[in-house]
C-alpha cells in the first residue's frame, strides 16, 4: 500500500504588498495549479533524488519556494526571471519561508544552459501563455508575465529546445499552458526532441482552461 503523501503548505507571501504586484506577477490560478501538480507528483519526484531543480520565470518565487520546502536542503533551487524585480522578490519569498534559493536575472535559461546541460532533475516553467500581438512579447516588466504572442506560444517555443538540453536522464519538465497554446503541437515538437508528454492537471479558471504538462525522456 502506498503511504500517505505529506501535505505541503502554500508558501507564505504575506511580506509582499500590492505595490510589489504592480511590478511582479501575483500568484494566481495558474501558479496554484502548478503547486497542486508538483504536490501530486511528490512520490515520483522524490524517487529521482533530485539534486538540481530549476524554475524559469519565477515571478514572486512561490513555485521554487514550494519545491524547496518539498525537497529541502538535499537539492539546490535555481530560478531565473527576465524581470529583475521578480528575482529580488523571489529571494524575499524564499527568506520568508526559510528556504534557500538561487535567483538569476537572465533570458529563459541562456546564462546557465551550457553548465547545466543534462544535469537538471526538476525543471518548471509557468510561462507567459496569453495570446497577444507579437509586438507585446519581450517588452519586460509586468507585461512579460503574460504576453505570449501568437497562439501564446512565442516564449514557450523558444524555451522548449533549451529544456531538452537541460534535463538529466531522469529529469522531468513541468510546463503550464492554456488550451489556446495547442498542447498537440507542443507534444509533436517535444516528441521530435525525444520527450514524452502527459497531462498532470487540468482546471478551468474563469475563461482560462489551464493544463500542467509533464515531459520525460523516452527511454
Amino acid at each position: 500500500m502506498e503511504c500517505q503523501r505529506p501535505v505541503f503548505a502554500t508558501p507564505d507571501t504575506s511580506h509582499l504588498s500590492p505595490q510589489d504586484f504592480d511590478l511582479v506577477y501575483e500568484p494566481a490560478e495558474d501558479s496554484f495549479l502548478l503547486l497542486d501538480a508538483l504536490e501530486s507528483e511528490y512520490f515520483s519526484l522524490r524517487k529521482l533524488r533530485p539534486t538540481i531543480c530549476v524554475e524559469v520565470g519565477c515571478g514572486s518565487g512561490i513555485c521554487i519556494t514550494f519545491l524547496a520546502s518539498m525537497f529541502g536542503p538535499g537539492a539546490c533551487y535555481i530560478c531565473t526571471d527576465i524581470n529583475p524585480t521578480a528575482a529580488k522578490v523571489a529571494a524575499q519569498t524564499a527568506d520568508q519561508n526559510k528556504v534557500l534559493i538561487h535567483p538569476i536575472v537572465c533570458d529563459l535559461v541562456n546564462a546557465i544552459n551550457d553548465q547545466l546541460r543534462g544535469k537538471v532533475d526538476i525543471l518548471v516553467f509557468n510561462p507567459p501563455y496569453v495570446v497577444t500581438p507579437s509586438n507585446e512579447v519581450g517588452n519586460g516588466g509586468i507585461e512579460a508575465s503574460w504576453a505570449g504572442g501568437e497562439k501564446g506560444r512565442e516564449v514557450i517555443d523558444r524555451f522548449l529546445p533549451h529544456a531538452v538540453q537541460l534535463l538529466s536522464l531522469q529529469g522531468i519538465l513541468y510546463l503550464v499552458i492554456i488550451k489556446e497554446n495547442r498542447s498537440d503541437e507542443i507534444e509533436d515538437k517535444m516528441r521530435q526532441f525525444g520527450l514524452h508528454m502527459t497531462t498532470v492537471k487540468n482546471r478551468r479558471a474563469g475563461k482560462e482552461n489551464l493544463y500542467v504538462l509533464k515531459f520525460t525522456r523516452v527511454t
Binding site: 539546490c76 538561487h102 533570458d107 546564462a111 551550457d114 553548465q115
Partner: peptide, 22 residues
C-alpha cells in the same frame, strides 16, 4: 549570489563569445 551560482553562469550568451566561463 553564492559561488554555486557563479559555477553555472557563462557569458556565452554574448554574440561571438565561446569561452565565457568561468
Amino acid at each position: 549570489m553564492k559561488l554555486l551560482t557563479h559555477n553555472i553562469l557563462t557569458s556565452n550568451i554574448i554574440k561571438g563569445v565561446t569561452r565565457g566561463f568561468p
